[in-house]
């Protein structure tokens, strides 16, 4: 399987992507904000379409900027509505998610009906096409991985602190808003570079499921990340292998199926799992 150069590129891309998602997903999970990733992923669509409409080409940089703007806008809209109304958080998430996605669909269908020559492939963002990963995409994904790893090494402790005791952070003079902004920025970056490969709905899965798996084995953040990484890399291998063997099968969904397999295994056997179905009782 590794003989094929293109498959190798796809494999490396997908693995790096799931590493990114797992790392930043864990910090969102710790803040109980897993579903924010889902909202951001949906909100990126109008940004991508807008920057395509303005530039008439699929230049990565412009698409990235557009995606970034609407992604950030969605996060700020959620905060804004949450502060100023009595609506439940789940309702607000639902409103923002579906509004931005609706806007994205309006723009996407508008572009498709106009018949721009360059537009084909924009709909890849909806469900993703891992097979379309090129070496240039891998470089971009890898640079995000690098940024993530460096930031986590430098600021990881603050990211944990904000999840468990944000009052403490502001007391010692660190701006929680700034830290939150950094986490949001990293989340949007990760989603934007990965969305073409696995699509809007399923990128959220790769951010949500690995930390949930890690949490079933440990309560230490570093171990949650490591175990999550193990599961997501394994699932990426499964996904790429299956779509390589059965060419009609898409990669992204199989990665998710793999992850859920790991999750079920962890739910049954995990040392921190509350089920402990197969735990041997100590006498």
């Amino acid at each position: 399987m590794l003989n094929s150069y293109t498959t190798l590129i796809v494999l490396i891309g997908v693995i790096l992507l799931s590493i990114n998602c797992t790392i930043i997903g864990t910090y969102n999970y710790l803040q109980k904000k897993s579903l924010l990733a889902d909202v951001v992923a949906h909100s990126i669509l109008p940004g991508i379409c807008l920057s395509f409409l303005l530039t008439q080409e699929k230049d990565f940089l412009w698409l990235f900027i557009g995606a970034f703007i609407t992604g950030m806008a969605s996060i700020y809209t959620i905060d804004f509505i949450k502060r100023a109304s009595f609506l439940g958080e789940d309702t607000i998430l639902g409103i923002v998610l579906s509004f931005f996605f609706g806007l994205g669909i309006v723009l996407l269908t508008y572009i498709q009906n106009q018949g721009f020559s360059e537009q084909s492939g924009l709909d890849n963002f909806l469900l993703g096409r891992a097979a379309s990963i090129l070496i240039s995409d891998v470089k971009i994904i890898a640079s995000v991985t690098l940024i993530l790893v460096v930031t986590i090494i430098l600021l990881g402790r603050l990211f944990v602190a904000i999840a468990f005791d944000s009052a403490f952070l502001s007391q010692i003079g660190i701006s929680t808003k700034l830290i939150q902004l950094i986490i949001s920025t990293l989340t949007i970056m990760t989603i934007t570079v990965g969305i073409q490969a696995v699509g809007i709905v399923l990128i959220a899965a790769i951010m949500i499921i690995p930390p949930a798996i890690g949490r079933l084995w440990s309560y230490q953040v570093s171990r949650i990340i490591l175990i999550g990484l193990l599961a997501s890399i394994l699932s990426s291998l499964i996904g790429v292998y299956i779509s390589y063997t059965f060419p009609r099968s898409p990669t992204g969904p199989w990665i998710v199926v793999g992850l859920v397999g790991c999750f079920l295994f962890s739910l049954l056997f995990g040392t921190q799992s509350s089920l402990k179905v197969f735990e041997i009782r100590k006498i």
Binding site: K32, L35, L127, L202, I208, P250, P253, V256, V260
Partner: peptide, 23 residues
């Protein structure tokens, strides 16, 4: 029963079913 936090349990279930649907 699984004591999985609320946001994650919704996220896991629907993305899984959606993935199966797309496959």
């Amino acid at each position: 029963k699984g004591k999985i936090q609320a946001d994650a349990s919704i996220g896991i279930v629907f993305t899984f079913f959606f993935a199966v649907g797309i496959i």
